[in-house]
Amino acid sequence: MASITFKDLPTVVLRTYQVLRIGNNIHDKELDFCLDDKSVAKLHATLTRSEKGIFLVNESRNGCVSLNGQCFSGPVLITYRDAINGLVKLRFGRVEATLRVSGSLGG
C-alpha cells in the first residue's frame, strides 16, 4: 500500500496505474492536489503507482522536486528501498509531503 499526505490536506491512497497530478492552478479541475504556494508550478509533478514502484515526474520547467532531500529534474522510480521507516519525504517547491509505503512496491 502507498499513500501521500500534504499538510492540511486529506491523505490519498495510491492505486495501481492511478496518476496523481500536483500543481497550483485553481482553475484546473484535473489536479488531484492544488497547492497554494507560489513555488509550485501550475502542473508541477505527477505521481503514478505501477507494479514496479511509484514513478514521480517533475513536470515543471524551473520548479524543484526532491526525494528524501535530493532534487531531481526527470522521472524517478520510488521503491520500498527509498523509504526510511516506511516514509519517503517529498518536496514540491517549498511544500513538503510524506509518502507512506508498506509492504512491497516492487523493485
Rank of each mutant, 00 (worst) to 15 (best):
Arg49Met: 09
Tyr17Phe: 11
Ile4Pro: 00
Pro75Ala: 13
Ser3Trp: 01
Ser50Cys: 13
Thr79Tyr: 08
Val76Ile: 15
Pro75His: 08
Leu31Thr: 04
Pro75Arg: 14
Ala41His: 08
Cys64Gly: 02
Ser3His: 04
Glu59Asp: 11
Ile4Trp: 03
Glu30Asp: 14
Ser73Asn: 12
Asp82Leu: 09
Ala41Asp: 09
Arg21Lys: 14
Thr48Lys: 14
Thr79Ala: 03
Ile78Gln: 09
Ser39His: 07
Ser50Thr: 14
Gly93Trp: 03
Pro75Gly: 13
Asn58Phe: 06
Gly23Trp: 00
Ile84Arg: 09
Ala45Gly: 02
Phe92Arg: 02
Gln18Phe: 06
Ile4Gln: 02
Val57Gly: 00
Tyr17Gly: 04
Thr5Tyr: 07
Gly63Trp: 09
Leu67Gly: 01
Leu31Phe: 03
Asn58Pro: 04
Leu20His: 01
Asp82Pro: 03
Gly93Asp: 01
Gly93Val: 04
Arg81Phe: 15
Ile78Arg: 11
Ala2Ile: 06
Gly63Asn: 07
Asn62Trp: 13
Asp28Cys: 01
Ser66Asp: 05
Val40Phe: 04
Ile54Pro: 04
Lys52Pro: 03
Arg15Phe: 11
Glu51Arg: 14
Phe72Cys: 06
Cys71Asn: 10
Cys34Arg: 03
Arg94Leu: 11
His27Val: 10
Phe33Ser: 05
Phe33Asp: 00
Gly23Ala: 06
Asn58Gly: 02
Leu87Lys: 14
Thr5His: 07
Asn58His: 05
Cys64Phe: 12
Ile26Asn: 09
Val65Leu: 01
Asn68Asp: 07
Arg49Thr: 02
Glu30Thr: 14
Ala45Asp: 00
Val12Lys: 15
Gly93Phe: 00
Asn68Ala: 13
Tyr80Cys: 11
Asp37Thr: 07
Ile78His: 07
Leu90Glu: 12
Arg61Gln: 10
Ser73Ile: 07
Ser50Gly: 15
Arg15Asp: 05
Val12Cys: 06
Lys89His: 12
Asp32Ser: 02
Pro10Asp: 14
Gly74Lys: 15
Asp28Ile: 00
Arg94Ala: 10
Asn68Gln: 11
Asp36Gln: 12
Asn58Cys: 02
Thr5Trp: 01
Val12Leu: 13
Thr46Glu: 06
Cys64Leu: 14
Asn68Val: 02
Val88Trp: 08
Asn58Gln: 05
Ala41Pro: 01
Tyr17Leu: 08
Glu51Asp: 13
Ile54Glu: 02
Gly63Arg: 10
Thr11Val: 12
Gln70Arg: 12
Phe6His: 03
Ile22Trp: 00
Ala2Tyr: 07
Ser3Pro: 02
Gly74Phe: 11
Gly53Gln: 05
Ala2Met: 02
Glu51His: 13
Val12Met: 12
Phe55Asp: 08
Gly74Asp: 11
Ile22Pro: 03
Val57Thr: 10
Glu30Met: 06
Glu59Met: 05
Ser60Gln: 03
Ile78Val: 14
Val12Asp: 05
Ser60Ile: 01
Asp8Ile: 04
